[in-house]
């Protein structure tokens, strides 16, 4: 155990602590670090400009999360409802793309969406003659890229609780006269909240800290926190401010994880209720 723990401590805990410490220093005129204690970097995080970038990132990440959860849940539901012997195969192929290179999957969208790309070709083939639509370098492209990249995880996270659902619960609910929609809303959904929450947290956390997708699919027109952190370290050479931004990112991550824990906790309460709804 000791070597592994030492490794994690030396190369994760210490560096992260270092970043936290960095955030309290001042940037030198030409980059580098001036060792004077200051809180201004944290103040700067709340500057309307940067706070705005945080909010905008949260909005883009939130939209991607919402879409991924809706599609992913539907897919997971369909897989869980497929014949039993097919389920592992379907699940495997749903998750497989997730393990291919992230950059390549993002690049595929450049190929699809650029003005002379496949989507335009397809439109022309269907007889469209007008100007090719602008799809690449839009917020939509960034969101599509994020959804595409993280969807498999949502499918996986939602499949686990769906596959464990007791079909008798739904039957009982229907026998008691509940509509399919009510059954879904009152019985199935509450029981699968933990899976949804886990999938959503994953997509949100990875999206909000992403810098590759906005850089490649956003054409530099969309600033997200990930890009901002990247810029502070590799462009503006303002490491202390970059460190403060990274810490803010960690705080957001922890808040989201806490929200997930609460949702899962509530869900187990609701689940009991759902069961009694169905049984009673």
């Amino acid at each position: 155990m000791a070597p592994a723990l030492a490794w994690l401590t030396a190369l994760m805990v210490v560096p992260c602590a270092l970043v936290l410490a960095l955030a309290f220093f001042r940037r030198g005129t030409y980059g580098g670090i001036e060792y004077t204690f200051t809180l201004e970097n944290f103040g700067l995080v709340f500057d309307p400009l940067y706070a705005g970038i945080f909010l905008n990132s949260a909005r883009i990440a939130g939209t991607a999360t919402l879409i991924a959860v809706v599609i992913g849940y539907a897919a997971a539901y369909a897989i869980a409802a497929a014949p039993r012997r097919l389920q592992p195969v379907l699940l495997f192929f749903a998750v497989l793309p997730f393990w291919s290179n992230y950059l390549i999957r993002t690049y595929a969208w450049i190929v699809l969406l650029n003005r002379e790309g496949l989507v335009t070709q397809l439109l022309r083939w269907f007889g469209y003659t007008g100007e090719p639509p602008s799809m690449l370098y839009t917020e939509g492209a960034v969101i599509a890229g994020l959804v595409y990249n993280y969807l498999p995880f949502v499918i996986l996270a939602c499949y686990a609780p769906l596959s464990r659902l007791n079909p008798e619960l739904a039957e009982a609910s229907r026998d008691l006269g509940a509509s399919a929609l009510t059954t879904f809303r009152r019985v199935i959904l509450p029981l699968t909240v933990p899976g949804i929450a886990a999938g959503a947290v994953f997509v949100f956390v990875l999206s909000i800290g992403n810098f590759v997708t906005p850089a490649l699919l956003g054409g530099g027109r969309f600033q997200m926190i990930g890009n901002l952190v990247y810029d502070q370290f590799l462009t503006a050479n303002d490491w202390p401010f970059g460190a403060a931004l990274a810490m803010a990112l960690i705080v957001i991550m922890l808040l989201v994880l806490m929200a997930q824990a609460i949702a899962a906790d509530r869900a187990s309460g609701h689940a009991a209720e759902a069961r009694s709804n169905a049984d009673g």
């Binding site: 940037r27 005129t29 400009l49 940067y50 027109r221 600033q223 503006a236 303002d238």
Partner: peptide, 19 residues
Amino acid sequence: VGDAQRDYSKIVSEIKAAQ
């Protein structure tokens, strides 16, 4: 431009973050 580079960076961030 020395210290003014920080202002430049901020202006560019504002431009790139603008909707």
